[in-house]
């Protein structure tokens, strides 16, 4: 086990290079596409690298269609995605942040009761949670649409937020339960003898000591919410309530005219979560693993 032959070393390094290519190469076209013009893209259909680079795609979307730059000078029609881009980005931020905070709060409360209080019905709650995690979203879409319409939350951000909280809650609970399970009971008991109520011991001891777990769970929830397409697509059809994925989905019919713009939006759309993943990789790995096999 200790000595590594040079042949093995070369083989493994090659394997690593291959895997890295597999992970990163598919992202290259987005970057290249975002920094070139539609004309360059169609100009030489065989070239790997564009002949000319431009920032006009970003200028256009970041200005909400105001700053057309050279490329878009003569174009009158702009899809909703372009004019509503900034708004959609903000919506995505608001939705993902609220969903994260709310989901984390509710999931923490529930996971605590499942793990810290030995009650029979909370174990059923856990089973219900695991099953709900796997309910196909598409089944819920129709009724959710009707429910949201009935309570007047159709075409509102709170409607989107509420639906996403409901759907992500099971997953968050599943991620948190193993953490709380492993949390030493004595700390909580000691706090109770020191003058905390049961709930107080959660607030003062269990939760502060679980910040890594909560962070992991929070990041995962944020990312999934940021990625969510179907819920906002169905609940919010008006442009002012669109989130980034919906804006992108709207481009599906315009993609042959605005392909490079679409790539620019894609790049901005994937940047926040990519950044989170790379920065918080360590926490995420723990959270994702715990969520599948309960630590």
């Amino acid at each position: 086990m200790n000595k590594v032959t040079w042949r093995y070393r070369i083989f493994m390094n090659l394997a690593n290079v291959l895997v890295i290519c597999f992970l990163l190469l598919p992202l290259v076209p987005v970057v290249l596409g975002a920094f070139q013009s539609e004309r360059t893209l169609h100009g030489d259909v065989w070239a790997l690298l564009p002949a000319e680079y431009t920032l006009d795609n970003f200028r256009l979307i970041l200005s909400g269609g105001e700053n057309k730059g050279e490329i878009f000078q003569g174009i009158d029609y702009l899809p909703n995605s372009v004019t509503w881009f900034r708004n959609a980005f903000m919506n995505s931020m608001i939705v993902a942040t609220s969903v994260t905070v709310l989901t984390l709060t509710l999931a923490t409360l529930t996971a605590l009761t499942i793990t810290r209080l030995n009650l029979s019905w909370t174990s059923y709650l856990m089973n219900a949670t695991v099953i709900s995690r796997m309910v196909p979203l598409i089944v819920l879409m129709l009724p959710l649409f009707v429910v949201m319409r009935n309570i007047g939350l159709l075409n509102t951000l709170p409607g989107i937020i509420m639906a996403e909280v409901g759907l992500l809650l099971p997953y968050a609970i599943i991620i948190l339960v193993p953490y709380f399970q492993a949390f030493p009971k004595e700390l909580e008991e000691s706090a109770r003898l020191d003058g905390c109520s049961r709930f107080g011991s959660y607030v003062r001891i269990v939760v502060p000591l679980s910040t890594p777990a909560l962070a992991a769970c929070g990041v995962i929830i944020f990312i999934i919410s940021w990625h969510e397409l179907l819920i906002p697509l169905i609940i919010a059809s008006k442009p002012e309530f669109m989130t980034l994925p919906v804006v992108l989905a709207g481009l599906v019919s315009d993609q042959f005219v605005f392909f490079t713009v679409m790539m620019a939006i894609c790049l901005i759309g994937l940047a926040p979560t990519l950044l989170l993943v790379l920065l918080l990789q360590k926490y995420l790995v723990k959270g994702l693993t715990a969520g599948a096999v309960k630590g």
Partner: peptide, 30 residues
């Protein structure tokens, strides 16, 4: 009566020291 109102102190086998508090904070928590 809730444990916190019993005016009882307990030393646990695992000590149950609060890992996020210093020795002084641990001792002063109650």
């Amino acid at each position: 009566i809730a444990p916190r109102d019993r005016d009882i102190a307990m030393v646990f086998q695992s000590y149950a020291l609060y890992p996020h508090m210093t020795v002084a904070q641990n001792m002063g928590f109650a």
